[in-house]
């Protein structure tokens, strides 16, 4: 009956007492902002235009609007951050070792940076195309 939690588990608890828990707050706030931005994005792109999707020319004209440009840029940033934080939360629930978690963190940061960078590039490129 002398079986309590193993020393390893307790040590694991101690070493994992990190502050990253409050990343949840970032997750929550980005989510709340996304409600508005994604709402605007979806309505604008899919429910206003006849037929549901814009053709090439319509898209370019649309993105040329500076308000839309800002919304889309914000959407890319918040969407990627929210999604990758979510991925991290799921991975954490799979009990990665401290080393794996470090690797995951860096991987997600890298992937996120690339995705956001790509999104920004795309937005700027489209605006250029629109002239």
């Amino acid at each position: 009956m002398q079986s309590t939690m193993s020393r390893r588990t307790l040590e694991e608890m101690a070493t994992r007492r990190d502050r990253s828990g409050s990343l949840w707050l970032v997750q929550a706030f980005s989510g709340l902002f996304l409600v508005f931005i994604l709402g605007a994005h979806m309505i604008a792109h899919h429910f206003i235009v006849e037929g549901g999707l814009r053709n090439y020319q319509q898209v370019l004209e649309y993105v040329a609007n500076p308000v839309v440009f800002v919304i889309e840029v914000l959407f890319v940033i918040l969407g990627v951050v929210h999604a990758l934080l979510g991925v991290r939360a799921i991975i954490i629930d799979l009990r990665p070792s401290a080393g794996t978690l470090r690797l995951v963190n860096w991987g997600l940061v890298f992937f996120g940076a690339v995705a956001i960078g790509y999104g920004l590039w795309l937005a700027v490129a489209l605006q250029r195309l629109a002239g």
Partner: peptide, 21 residues
């Protein structure tokens, strides 16, 4: 999440010109 990244990559078609889009 899967959709978001698919969506982002599909948008690259826009840069390739009107036909692909």
């Amino acid at each position: 999440t899967i959709y978001l990244f698919l969506h982002l990559s599909v948008l690259s078609l826009l840069v390739r010109g009107p036909e692909s889009w």
